[in-house]
């Protein structure tokens, strides 16, 4: 059974005097216990909005977020029920996700104190344990956030979430504000936490290359919808959606071969006025008649691997040739 499940989640932002924007236009996702699921997409694809909905920070306009099969209510003025505290979130910017005026020890003990997880005299020992768990010196307990580097702060933010003994962590771009060496440290930490503590994670990122290193499964989002999802290596080596393929082709390689990454033509359209049919079709090298006319469903192609693309509809595709042939086009 899945631990966290997003069912047809839609999030619509109302804008004063302008058309509303469907930032997330019906996305489904499941995360099993102890599993790391990557959610990848470029700016404006709605991945951060989906992350906030998944963590319960905002209410979906339609669809449901289920934890253990029970719907999650979005935050209200009241305290969250203990059951939902098992769902935690880590934010992108470690500079703004820690309170600058409170000592680390006090912030890490928040979850223990608020949820009365243990007697006050035991809390300090637990905080020290949490600091060790994320590889920080234990004297950090009496320091303030500004005394730490970006990578260290992100580890502090992670350990604050760990204090709540979460079953699921939603991580919104936890690596993108960090330097390469700090990025690797935090990425490895996340994998270890998942393997050792069995914490399931939804990892939101724009960086497919690093998500590939961490995630067990990946979903790719484009303009508010999931266009492809599958096990990491399968999706990486045999992408079924042209957008996934474009994303992979655009990643620069630090291999010294001087291979130029491939650009994707055109621009991300305004989410308030998405193209008809497949949302990717105006930029797709392989679009054909049907693509601009009808919306493709996310259909299962191979056990866990699913894509929303008319090329994989046996009755519709004009040429059954594998996608890879189109990869050579550059511009």
């Amino acid at each position: 059974m899945s631990l966290l499940e997003l069912q047809d989640v839609e999030v619509t932002y109302q804008r004063r005097g302008r058309a509303p924007v469907r930032a997330v236009a019906g996305a489904s996702l499941t995360i099993g216990p102890g599993e790391i699921v990557g959610l990848v997409g470029e700016s404006g694809c709605g991945k951060s909005t989906l992350a906030r909905a998944a963590a319960g920070l905002l209410a979906p306009s339609s669809g449901r977020v289920l934890l253990h099969g029970q719907p999650i209510a979005a935050l209200s003025r009241r305290a969250r029920p203990a059951r939902e505290v098992k769902l935690q979130m880590v934010f992108q910017d470690p500079y703004s996700s820690l309170n600058p005026r409170r000592r680390i020890g006090s912030q890490l003990a928040d979850a223990l104190r608020i949820n009365k997880l243990m007697a006050p005299e035991l809390q300090r020992a637990r905080v020290i344990e949490l600091l060790e768990q994320v590889g920080l010196p234990t004297d950090a307990i009496d320091s303030y956030p500004h005394q730490f580097s970006g990578g260290q702060r992100q580890r502090l933010a992670i350990s604050r979430a760990l204090a709540a003994q979460p079953e699921v962590l939603v991580l919104d771009e936890p690596l993108s504000a960090l330097d390469a060496s700090a990025q690797a440290q935090v990425a490895n930490l996340l994998v270890n936490l998942c393997r050792e503590l069995g914490i399931a994670m939804l990892l939101i990122s724009h960086d497919l290359a690093i998500v590939r290193q961490i995630a067990d499964r990946i979903s790719v989002m484009y303009l508010g919808v999931v266009v492809e999802s599958g096990p990491t290596e399968q999706l990486w080596t045999d992408p079924k959606h042209p957008y996934t393929e474009a994303l992979i082709g655009a990643i620069p390689h630090a291999d010294g071969l001087g291979v130029k990454p491939r650009a994707l033509r055109g621009e991300v359209p305004d989410p308030a006025e998405p193209p008809a049919g497949c949302r990717f079709h105006p930029r797709c090298e392989r679009a054909f008649g049907k693509c601009s006319a009808a919306v493709p469903d996310l259909i299962s192609l191979d056990r866990d691997h699913a894509a929303a693309c008319w090329l994989h509809d046996p009755e519709q595709a004009p040429q059954p040739s594998p996608l890879k042939d189109a990869a050579g086009d550059s511009h």
Partner: peptide
């Protein structure tokens, strides 16, 4: 070594400094 290497196989872990 700390960078992901898209060209390499999947068994190349990130080695942090």
């Amino acid at each position: 070594s700390a960078l992901p290497h898209p060209e390499a196989g999947d068994e190349r872990p990130l080695v942090a400094i």
